[in-house]
Design a protein around this nucleic acid. Structure first.
Lengths: 189, 189
DNA sequence: CCCGCTTGCCTAAAGCCTTTAGGTTGATCT
DNA sequence: AGATCAACCTAAAGGCTTTAGGCAAGCGGG
Protein backbone atom coordinates (compact mmCIF):
# COMPACT_ATOMS: atom_id res chain seq x y z
CA UNK A 1 0.00 0.00 0.00
CA UNK A 2 1.66 3.20 -1.16
CA UNK A 3 0.72 6.03 1.17
CA UNK A 4 -0.43 9.27 -0.28
CA UNK A 5 1.29 11.24 2.45
CA UNK A 6 -1.66 13.29 3.52
CA UNK A 7 -1.52 15.93 6.18
CA UNK A 8 -4.20 18.38 7.21
CA UNK A 9 -2.42 21.09 5.28
CA UNK A 10 -2.19 19.07 2.11
CA UNK A 11 -5.83 18.10 2.37
CA UNK A 12 -6.87 21.73 2.78
CA UNK A 13 -4.65 22.83 -0.07
CA UNK A 14 -6.15 20.19 -2.35
CA UNK A 15 -9.57 21.30 -1.15
CA UNK A 16 -8.80 24.86 -2.19
CA UNK A 17 -7.77 23.69 -5.66
CA UNK A 18 -10.91 21.62 -5.96
CA UNK A 19 -13.04 24.60 -4.95
CA UNK A 20 -11.33 26.78 -7.55
CA UNK A 21 -11.81 24.26 -10.31
CA UNK A 22 -15.23 22.83 -9.52
CA UNK A 23 -16.85 25.55 -7.42
CA UNK A 24 -17.05 25.95 -3.67
CA UNK A 25 -20.31 24.05 -3.44
CA UNK A 26 -18.66 20.98 -4.92
CA UNK A 27 -16.05 20.97 -2.19
CA UNK A 28 -17.13 17.74 -0.48
CA UNK A 29 -15.23 14.97 1.26
CA UNK A 30 -16.16 12.41 -1.35
CA UNK A 31 -15.12 14.49 -4.33
CA UNK A 32 -11.91 15.49 -2.60
CA UNK A 33 -11.10 11.87 -1.71
CA UNK A 34 -11.64 10.88 -5.33
CA UNK A 35 -9.24 13.57 -6.46
CA UNK A 36 -6.64 12.52 -3.90
CA UNK A 37 -6.96 8.84 -4.79
CA UNK A 38 -7.89 7.95 -1.26
CA UNK A 39 -10.87 6.46 0.57
CA UNK A 40 -13.33 9.00 1.89
CA UNK A 41 -12.96 7.91 5.48
CA UNK A 42 -9.24 8.66 5.34
CA UNK A 43 -9.95 12.37 5.19
CA UNK A 44 -11.67 12.26 8.51
CA UNK A 45 -8.34 11.90 10.29
CA UNK A 46 -7.34 15.32 8.97
CA UNK A 47 -10.64 17.14 9.00
CA UNK A 48 -13.55 16.86 11.45
CA UNK A 49 -16.34 16.80 8.88
CA UNK A 50 -17.47 18.42 5.65
CA UNK A 51 -18.13 21.76 7.30
CA UNK A 52 -14.75 21.76 8.97
CA UNK A 53 -13.13 21.17 5.59
CA UNK A 54 -14.90 24.19 4.12
CA UNK A 55 -14.02 26.31 7.14
CA UNK A 56 -10.35 25.43 6.85
CA UNK A 57 -10.35 26.37 3.17
CA UNK A 58 -12.00 29.65 4.11
CA UNK A 59 -9.29 30.39 6.66
CA UNK A 60 -6.62 29.59 4.11
CA UNK A 61 -8.21 31.99 1.65
CA UNK A 62 -8.50 34.78 4.21
CA UNK A 63 -4.85 34.30 5.07
CA UNK A 64 -3.67 34.33 1.50
CA UNK A 65 -5.73 37.39 0.73
CA UNK A 66 -4.40 39.26 3.73
CA UNK A 67 -0.82 38.36 2.82
CA UNK A 68 -1.24 39.62 -0.71
CA UNK A 69 -2.95 42.77 0.47
CA UNK A 70 -0.20 43.50 2.97
CA UNK A 71 2.42 43.07 0.25
CA UNK A 72 0.51 45.38 -2.09
CA UNK A 73 0.15 48.04 0.56
CA UNK A 74 3.84 48.20 1.41
CA UNK A 75 5.26 51.58 0.44
CA UNK A 76 2.00 52.99 -0.88
CA UNK A 77 -0.41 55.56 0.47
CA UNK A 78 -3.52 57.45 -0.52
CA UNK A 79 -5.02 56.65 -3.86
CA UNK A 80 -2.17 54.32 -4.80
CA UNK A 81 -2.81 52.23 -1.72
CA UNK A 82 -6.54 52.21 -2.32
CA UNK A 83 -6.19 50.96 -5.88
CA UNK A 84 -3.50 48.42 -5.08
CA UNK A 85 -5.54 46.98 -2.24
CA UNK A 86 -8.72 46.83 -4.26
CA UNK A 87 -6.94 45.15 -7.14
CA UNK A 88 -5.66 42.45 -4.83
CA UNK A 89 -9.23 41.58 -3.96
CA UNK A 90 -10.45 41.56 -7.50
CA UNK A 91 -7.47 39.66 -8.88
CA UNK A 92 -7.64 37.08 -6.14
CA UNK A 93 -11.33 36.46 -6.74
CA UNK A 94 -10.77 36.07 -10.48
CA UNK A 95 -7.76 33.84 -9.98
CA UNK A 96 -9.27 31.73 -7.20
CA UNK A 97 -13.05 31.91 -7.41
CA UNK A 98 -13.57 28.90 -5.15
CA UNK A 99 -11.27 30.24 -2.46
CA UNK A 100 -12.90 33.65 -2.69
CA UNK A 101 -16.34 32.08 -2.27
CA UNK A 102 -14.94 30.20 0.70
CA UNK A 103 -13.76 33.45 2.25
CA UNK A 104 -17.41 34.57 2.24
CA UNK A 105 -18.42 31.63 4.40
CA UNK A 106 -20.03 32.72 7.62
CA UNK A 107 -17.69 31.75 10.44
CA UNK A 108 -18.74 31.42 14.02
CA UNK A 109 -17.53 34.34 16.17
CA UNK A 110 -14.45 32.74 17.77
CA UNK A 111 -13.24 31.31 14.48
CA UNK A 112 -13.78 34.66 12.82
CA UNK A 113 -11.87 36.48 15.55
CA UNK A 114 -8.94 34.08 15.18
CA UNK A 115 -8.96 34.37 11.38
CA UNK A 116 -7.23 36.91 9.20
CA UNK A 117 -10.47 38.91 9.08
CA UNK A 118 -9.32 41.50 11.60
CA UNK A 119 -6.13 42.02 9.59
CA UNK A 120 -8.27 42.98 6.62
CA UNK A 121 -10.14 45.59 8.62
CA UNK A 122 -6.87 46.90 10.00
CA UNK A 123 -5.44 47.35 6.52
CA UNK A 124 -8.47 49.29 5.36
CA UNK A 125 -8.04 51.61 8.33
CA UNK A 126 -4.42 52.02 7.32
CA UNK A 127 -5.45 53.09 3.84
CA UNK A 128 -7.82 55.64 5.27
CA UNK A 129 -4.98 57.25 7.19
CA UNK A 130 -4.03 58.74 3.85
CA UNK A 131 -7.30 60.64 3.90
CA UNK A 132 -8.63 62.97 6.52
CA UNK A 133 -11.25 60.92 8.32
CA UNK A 134 -11.73 60.77 12.05
CA UNK A 135 -13.75 58.86 14.62
CA UNK A 136 -16.87 57.09 13.42
CA UNK A 137 -16.42 58.46 9.92
CA UNK A 138 -13.43 56.20 9.56
CA UNK A 139 -15.57 53.21 10.48
CA UNK A 140 -18.26 54.21 8.03
CA UNK A 141 -15.66 54.54 5.32
CA UNK A 142 -14.14 51.15 6.15
CA UNK A 143 -17.56 49.64 5.78
CA UNK A 144 -18.15 51.42 2.51
CA UNK A 145 -14.89 50.15 1.12
CA UNK A 146 -15.61 46.63 2.28
CA UNK A 147 -19.06 46.77 0.75
CA UNK A 148 -17.90 48.08 -2.61
CA UNK A 149 -15.00 45.65 -2.94
CA UNK A 150 -16.98 42.66 -1.86
CA UNK A 151 -20.10 43.68 -3.73
CA UNK A 152 -18.40 44.45 -7.02
CA UNK A 153 -16.21 41.40 -6.99
CA UNK A 154 -19.04 39.09 -6.07
CA UNK A 155 -21.35 40.52 -8.71
CA UNK A 156 -18.58 40.28 -11.28
CA UNK A 157 -17.64 36.69 -10.50
CA UNK A 158 -21.32 35.76 -10.61
CA UNK A 159 -21.42 37.12 -14.14
CA UNK A 160 -23.58 40.08 -13.20
CA UNK A 161 -21.80 42.44 -15.60
CA UNK A 162 -21.29 39.97 -18.41
CA UNK A 163 -23.99 41.07 -20.78
CA UNK A 164 -23.59 44.80 -20.80
CA UNK A 165 -20.89 47.16 -21.85
CA UNK A 166 -18.52 48.72 -21.02
CA UNK A 167 -16.36 45.95 -19.61
CA UNK A 168 -16.34 45.42 -15.87
CA UNK A 169 -12.66 46.37 -15.70
CA UNK A 170 -13.44 49.87 -16.90
CA UNK A 171 -16.14 50.37 -14.29
CA UNK A 172 -13.73 49.11 -11.66
CA UNK A 173 -11.19 51.80 -12.52
CA UNK A 174 -13.79 54.54 -12.59
CA UNK A 175 -15.41 53.37 -9.36
CA UNK A 176 -12.07 53.42 -7.57
CA UNK A 177 -11.45 56.92 -8.86
CA UNK A 178 -14.86 57.95 -7.60
CA UNK A 179 -14.20 56.41 -4.19
CA UNK A 180 -10.90 58.21 -3.97
CA UNK A 181 -12.57 61.51 -4.67
CA UNK A 182 -15.34 60.72 -2.20
CA UNK A 183 -12.82 59.94 0.53
CA UNK A 184 -10.99 63.18 -0.13
CA UNK A 185 -14.19 65.09 0.31
CA UNK A 186 -16.18 63.03 2.76
CA UNK A 187 -19.46 64.69 3.80
CA UNK A 188 -19.44 65.31 7.56
CA UNK A 189 -22.64 64.88 9.50
CA UNK B 1 -56.29 10.12 1.78
CA UNK B 2 -56.67 13.83 2.40
CA UNK B 3 -54.87 15.76 -0.30
CA UNK B 4 -52.58 18.56 0.74
CA UNK B 5 -53.58 20.61 -2.29
CA UNK B 6 -50.10 21.35 -3.53
CA UNK B 7 -49.38 23.46 -6.55
CA UNK B 8 -46.06 24.66 -7.88
CA UNK B 9 -46.73 28.07 -6.43
CA UNK B 10 -47.54 26.78 -2.98
CA UNK B 11 -44.47 24.57 -3.01
CA UNK B 12 -42.26 27.49 -3.95
CA UNK B 13 -43.84 29.74 -1.36
CA UNK B 14 -43.31 27.15 1.35
CA UNK B 15 -39.76 26.78 0.08
CA UNK B 16 -39.23 30.51 0.54
CA UNK B 17 -40.49 30.32 4.12
CA UNK B 18 -38.26 27.36 4.82
CA UNK B 19 -35.27 29.23 3.42
CA UNK B 20 -36.02 32.24 5.61
CA UNK B 21 -36.36 30.17 8.75
CA UNK B 22 -33.69 27.55 8.28
CA UNK B 23 -31.28 29.16 5.83
CA UNK B 24 -31.06 28.87 2.06
CA UNK B 25 -28.65 25.96 2.24
CA UNK B 26 -31.24 23.93 4.12
CA UNK B 27 -33.76 24.39 1.35
CA UNK B 28 -33.92 20.77 0.20
CA UNK B 29 -36.73 18.61 -1.16
CA UNK B 30 -36.66 16.29 1.83
CA UNK B 31 -36.85 19.04 4.44
CA UNK B 32 -39.55 20.83 2.50
CA UNK B 33 -41.60 17.64 2.16
CA UNK B 34 -41.33 17.09 5.88
CA UNK B 35 -42.62 20.58 6.53
CA UNK B 36 -45.49 20.14 4.08
CA UNK B 37 -46.45 16.78 5.54
CA UNK B 38 -45.99 15.06 2.23
CA UNK B 39 -43.75 12.38 0.77
CA UNK B 40 -40.60 13.64 -0.90
CA UNK B 41 -41.45 12.18 -4.27
CA UNK B 42 -44.66 14.19 -4.37
CA UNK B 43 -42.71 17.40 -4.78
CA UNK B 44 -41.24 16.20 -8.01
CA UNK B 45 -44.55 16.73 -9.77
CA UNK B 46 -44.24 20.44 -9.07
CA UNK B 47 -40.54 20.99 -9.28
CA UNK B 48 -37.98 19.34 -11.57
CA UNK B 49 -35.31 18.72 -8.92
CA UNK B 50 -33.56 20.32 -5.96
CA UNK B 51 -31.84 22.92 -8.11
CA UNK B 52 -35.05 23.83 -9.85
CA UNK B 53 -36.66 24.38 -6.46
CA UNK B 54 -33.91 26.78 -5.43
CA UNK B 55 -34.08 28.58 -8.75
CA UNK B 56 -37.82 29.10 -8.44
CA UNK B 57 -37.39 30.53 -4.95
CA UNK B 58 -34.70 32.84 -6.34
CA UNK B 59 -37.06 34.07 -9.05
CA UNK B 60 -39.78 34.66 -6.48
CA UNK B 61 -37.39 36.70 -4.37
CA UNK B 62 -36.22 38.78 -7.33
CA UNK B 63 -39.82 39.49 -8.22
CA UNK B 64 -40.84 40.47 -4.73
CA UNK B 65 -37.81 42.71 -4.39
CA UNK B 66 -38.49 44.42 -7.68
CA UNK B 67 -42.14 44.98 -6.74
CA UNK B 68 -41.20 46.54 -3.44
CA UNK B 69 -38.54 48.68 -5.04
CA UNK B 70 -40.94 49.92 -7.70
CA UNK B 71 -43.47 50.86 -5.03
CA UNK B 72 -40.82 52.67 -3.02
CA UNK B 73 -39.64 54.60 -6.04
CA UNK B 74 -43.07 55.91 -7.00
CA UNK B 75 -43.21 59.65 -6.58
CA UNK B 76 -39.63 60.04 -5.43
CA UNK B 77 -36.53 61.40 -7.10
CA UNK B 78 -32.93 62.23 -6.34
CA UNK B 79 -31.68 61.50 -2.87
CA UNK B 80 -35.13 60.45 -1.65
CA UNK B 81 -35.36 57.84 -4.33
CA UNK B 82 -31.83 56.61 -3.65
CA UNK B 83 -32.50 56.14 0.06
CA UNK B 84 -35.92 54.58 -0.41
CA UNK B 85 -34.59 52.10 -2.95
CA UNK B 86 -31.60 51.18 -0.84
CA UNK B 87 -33.78 50.68 2.23
CA UNK B 88 -35.98 48.28 0.33
CA UNK B 89 -32.93 46.09 -0.30
CA UNK B 90 -31.71 46.20 3.25
CA UNK B 91 -35.11 45.69 4.82
CA UNK B 92 -35.94 42.83 2.52
CA UNK B 93 -32.68 41.07 3.31
CA UNK B 94 -33.22 41.47 7.03
CA UNK B 95 -36.83 40.38 6.82
CA UNK B 96 -36.23 37.48 4.43
CA UNK B 97 -32.62 36.37 4.72
CA UNK B 98 -33.26 33.06 2.97
CA UNK B 99 -35.01 34.66 0.04
CA UNK B 100 -32.29 37.28 -0.23
CA UNK B 101 -29.64 34.58 -0.27
CA UNK B 102 -31.68 32.85 -2.96
CA UNK B 103 -31.68 36.03 -5.04
CA UNK B 104 -27.89 35.80 -5.09
CA UNK B 105 -28.01 32.39 -6.74
CA UNK B 106 -26.20 32.34 -10.04
CA UNK B 107 -28.81 31.83 -12.73
CA UNK B 108 -28.03 30.61 -16.20
CA UNK B 109 -28.20 33.38 -18.81
CA UNK B 110 -31.69 32.72 -20.23
CA UNK B 111 -33.24 32.33 -16.81
CA UNK B 112 -31.53 35.50 -15.66
CA UNK B 113 -32.76 37.42 -18.68
CA UNK B 114 -36.33 36.29 -18.04
CA UNK B 115 -36.11 37.14 -14.33
CA UNK B 116 -36.81 40.42 -12.61
CA UNK B 117 -33.06 41.15 -12.73
CA UNK B 118 -33.30 43.57 -15.65
CA UNK B 119 -36.08 45.46 -13.83
CA UNK B 120 -33.66 46.08 -10.99
CA UNK B 121 -31.05 47.53 -13.30
CA UNK B 122 -33.70 49.66 -14.99
CA UNK B 123 -34.80 51.12 -11.66
CA UNK B 124 -31.26 52.05 -10.74
CA UNK B 125 -30.93 53.89 -14.04
CA UNK B 126 -34.18 55.67 -13.21
CA UNK B 127 -32.73 56.84 -9.91
CA UNK B 128 -29.67 58.16 -11.64
CA UNK B 129 -31.83 60.33 -13.86
CA UNK B 130 -32.13 62.54 -10.80
CA UNK B 131 -28.41 63.20 -11.08
CA UNK B 132 -26.44 64.52 -13.96
CA UNK B 133 -24.73 61.45 -15.37
CA UNK B 134 -24.42 60.57 -19.01
CA UNK B 135 -23.26 57.71 -21.20
CA UNK B 136 -20.90 55.18 -19.67
CA UNK B 137 -20.76 57.13 -16.43
CA UNK B 138 -24.33 56.11 -15.81
CA UNK B 139 -23.38 52.46 -16.20
CA UNK B 140 -20.44 52.85 -13.86
CA UNK B 141 -22.71 54.47 -11.31
CA UNK B 142 -25.32 51.70 -11.65
CA UNK B 143 -22.61 49.19 -10.97
CA UNK B 144 -21.35 51.15 -7.98
CA UNK B 145 -24.82 51.31 -6.49
CA UNK B 146 -25.40 47.62 -7.09
CA UNK B 147 -22.06 46.80 -5.51
CA UNK B 148 -22.61 48.92 -2.43
CA UNK B 149 -26.16 47.74 -1.80
CA UNK B 150 -25.36 44.13 -2.35
CA UNK B 151 -22.04 44.28 -0.57
CA UNK B 152 -23.27 46.08 2.50
CA UNK B 153 -26.37 43.99 2.90
CA UNK B 154 -24.56 40.75 2.41
CA UNK B 155 -21.80 41.68 4.87
CA UNK B 156 -24.40 42.81 7.38
CA UNK B 157 -26.54 39.68 7.12
CA UNK B 158 -23.41 37.59 7.46
CA UNK B 159 -22.74 39.32 10.75
CA UNK B 160 -19.72 41.19 9.43
CA UNK B 161 -20.52 44.35 11.38
CA UNK B 162 -21.76 42.68 14.54
CA UNK B 163 -18.77 43.12 16.78
CA UNK B 164 -17.88 46.71 16.22
CA UNK B 165 -19.54 49.99 16.81
CA UNK B 166 -21.27 52.14 15.70
CA UNK B 167 -24.30 50.09 14.67
CA UNK B 168 -24.61 49.04 11.05
CA UNK B 169 -27.74 51.17 10.65
CA UNK B 170 -25.76 54.32 11.31
CA UNK B 171 -23.14 53.46 8.73
CA UNK B 172 -25.91 52.72 6.25
CA UNK B 173 -27.35 56.21 6.63
CA UNK B 174 -23.95 57.86 6.34
CA UNK B 175 -22.93 55.73 3.38
CA UNK B 176 -26.10 56.65 1.51
CA UNK B 177 -25.45 60.30 2.22
CA UNK B 178 -21.92 59.88 0.91
CA UNK B 179 -23.16 58.15 -2.24
CA UNK B 180 -25.64 60.95 -2.84
CA UNK B 181 -22.92 63.53 -2.60
CA UNK B 182 -20.67 61.47 -4.84
CA UNK B 183 -23.37 61.18 -7.50
CA UNK B 184 -23.94 64.93 -7.39
CA UNK B 185 -20.29 65.52 -8.01
CA UNK B 186 -19.22 62.55 -10.08
CA UNK B 187 -15.58 62.81 -11.26
CA UNK B 188 -15.48 62.81 -15.08
CA UNK B 189 -12.66 61.07 -16.80
C1' DC C 1 -75.62 8.88 -12.23
C1' DC C 2 -71.54 6.80 -13.55
C1' DC C 3 -67.59 6.22 -16.50
C1' DG C 4 -63.19 7.65 -17.56
C1' DC C 5 -59.44 10.97 -17.35
C1' DT C 6 -56.40 13.94 -15.21
C1' DT C 7 -53.66 14.81 -11.53
C1' DG C 8 -52.20 14.71 -6.73
C1' DC C 9 -50.06 11.86 -3.94
C1' DC C 10 -48.26 7.38 -2.75
C1' DT C 11 -44.69 3.18 -2.23
C1' DA C 12 -40.48 1.18 -3.70
C1' DA C 13 -36.01 1.18 -4.99
C1' DA C 14 -31.42 2.66 -6.81
C1' DG C 15 -27.56 5.32 -6.02
C1' DC C 16 -25.08 8.82 -3.98
C1' DC C 17 -23.10 11.26 0.22
C1' DT C 18 -21.58 11.80 5.14
C1' DT C 19 -20.01 9.98 9.26
C1' DT C 20 -18.47 6.57 12.75
C1' DA C 21 -16.18 2.28 14.39
C1' DG C 22 -12.74 -0.62 14.09
C1' DG C 23 -8.71 -2.95 11.88
C1' DT C 24 -4.16 -3.20 9.41
C1' DT C 25 0.23 -1.69 7.95
C1' DG C 26 4.04 1.61 6.99
C1' DA C 27 7.30 4.78 9.24
C1' DT C 28 9.93 6.15 13.11
C1' DC C 29 12.22 6.24 17.46
C1' DT C 30 14.82 3.86 21.00
C1' DA D 1 14.21 -5.55 16.94
C1' DG D 2 10.28 -4.08 19.30
C1' DA D 3 6.99 -0.63 20.28
C1' DT D 4 4.37 3.18 18.99
C1' DC D 5 2.14 6.51 16.12
C1' DA D 6 0.03 7.94 12.11
C1' DA D 7 -1.92 6.96 7.70
C1' DC D 8 -4.95 4.46 5.45
C1' DC D 9 -8.33 0.83 4.97
C1' DT D 10 -13.08 -1.91 5.07
C1' DA D 11 -17.68 -2.05 6.63
C1' DA D 12 -21.86 -0.31 7.77
C1' DA D 13 -25.60 2.91 9.22
C1' DG D 14 -28.44 6.45 7.87
C1' DG D 15 -29.79 10.50 5.12
C1' DC D 16 -30.65 12.78 0.63
C1' DT D 17 -32.07 12.92 -4.41
C1' DT D 18 -34.29 11.09 -8.13
C1' DT D 19 -36.98 7.87 -11.08
C1' DA D 20 -40.64 4.41 -12.01
C1' DG D 21 -44.87 2.83 -11.48
C1' DG D 22 -49.48 2.62 -9.02
C1' DC D 23 -53.79 3.99 -6.66
C1' DA D 24 -57.56 7.08 -5.87
C1' DA D 25 -59.99 11.89 -5.66
C1' DG D 26 -62.50 14.77 -8.13
C1' DC D 27 -63.88 16.64 -12.44
C1' DG D 28 -66.28 16.75 -16.93
C1' DG D 29 -69.11 14.37 -20.49
C1' DG D 30 -72.53 11.12 -21.71
Amino acid sequence: MVRAGLTTERVVRAGAELADEAGFDRLTPSELARRLGVQVASLYSHVKNAHDLRTKVALLALDELADRAAAALAGRAGRDALVAFADVYRDYAREHPGRYAAAQLRLDPETAAASAGPRHAEMMRAILRGYDLTGPDETHAVRLLGSVFHGFVSLETQGGFDHSSPAAAESWVRILAALDSLLQDWPRS
